[in-house]
Design a binder for these strands. Structure first.
Lengths: 173, 173
DNA sequence: GTATTATCGTTTCATAGCTAACAGTTTTGA
DNA sequence: TCAAAACTGTTAGCTATGAAACGATAATAC
């Protein structure tokens, strides 16, 4: 759960940090936007926390990483997806997809198949064993999501989702 | 920017996905908590987006990863920190700290020093070159934070931070 | 119709990240 | 006192991650 700043209990940046930034970065304290710092830091911390929680409590049961699980989930939904499409969907590099697919293939959860017409294209296809793994993991994964979000009321959940989607859209994430 | 679910423009899960989950995971659609799905997915997506943006637009100038930057930031503030403390602060394993510290040492941004009294303890200390790197990077990093958060009003920024901090506290992230 | 260009996936090489094993050091306990 | 236990950091061995180079294939241009 990597984080940059140190906050106190009220979510305020420590005075010592403010002073250091002021002196060392030659940035007067009134040039620092504390709200922006807080938004970015807290989003990242929650994201890392939930990734770690899921990998530790759910995905480790099947020896899968978050990204492996994401890819296997896509294949569970779509059955067969081109390597290139997987890279776009999960927004990791094609090299990473290549590696992860290799790992999933070693576990016999997926297999590869070259397109017969355009032989540059490779499809990745989920196996029955892969489907069984997802049938086992998905309900537990979703339970984890519910737990994590349960710290907010339904209204708050809708609200935070709306704000996050705006950030995604306008920042082109 | 790894993500699991596919949403349409309104932030709704695709019907095809609902059906698949329903059939394959034997989870009736009314057992799925869409708000929880949305919260978790969108938080993760924003986090990955901001990490990628920072690494691409800011940190790559000095060849630093997000975690390397976090560690160097801590050292910039505190000057000298024990390896063990760095692992706690950044919440990565001590093995990772060992590796990253080695990389930072190779770049001459930090150096190590063994405690003279308790020789099990190793301090990591920032060099002048490390400080110069932070003086260069930090203002650009903070500018990136401001940009990302600027998609929200000040009131929304305060609100989302409050909700995220509650998730951090109650989930023990 | 062939040469150039574009596309796709893998490989290579580097860092990041984890768990487990290890080595050295200090503390504890009887 | 000194052997056992606890602590700290590194190493070993694995997967994940990306950029760049590469090899194979297909599309384009002339």
């Amino acid at each position: 759960m990597v984080r940059v700043y140190t906050f106190n209990d009220e979510g305020e940046l420590l005075q010592e940090e403010k002073d250091t930034i002021n002196q060392l970065a030659k940035m007067p304290m009134d040039m620092l936007n504390y709200n922006a710092i807080s938004v970015v830091t807290n989003i990242y911390r929650v994201a890392q926390g939930l990734k770690n929680k899921m990998e530790r409590e759910v995905l480790s049961k099947q020896g899968l990483s978050w990204t492996s699980f994401s890819i296997l989930y896509d294949l569970w939904i779509w059955n067969s997806v081109e390597t290139k499409k997987l890279a776009e969907l999960t927004a990791v590099s094609k090299a990473t997809i290549s590696n992860i697919t290799k790992t999933l293939e070693k576990k016999e959860l997926v297999y590869r198949k070259t397109d017969t017409r355009d032989r540059r294209i490779t499809y990745v296809i989920i196996t029955n064993k892969g489907k069984e793994v997802m049938e086992d993991l998905y309900p537990k994964f979703h339970q984890g999501e519910i737990e994590i979000a349960s710290m907010l009321t339904e209204k708050e959940q809708k609200n935070i989702s709306k704000l996050l989607r705006r950030m995604i859209r306008q920042n082109d994430f």
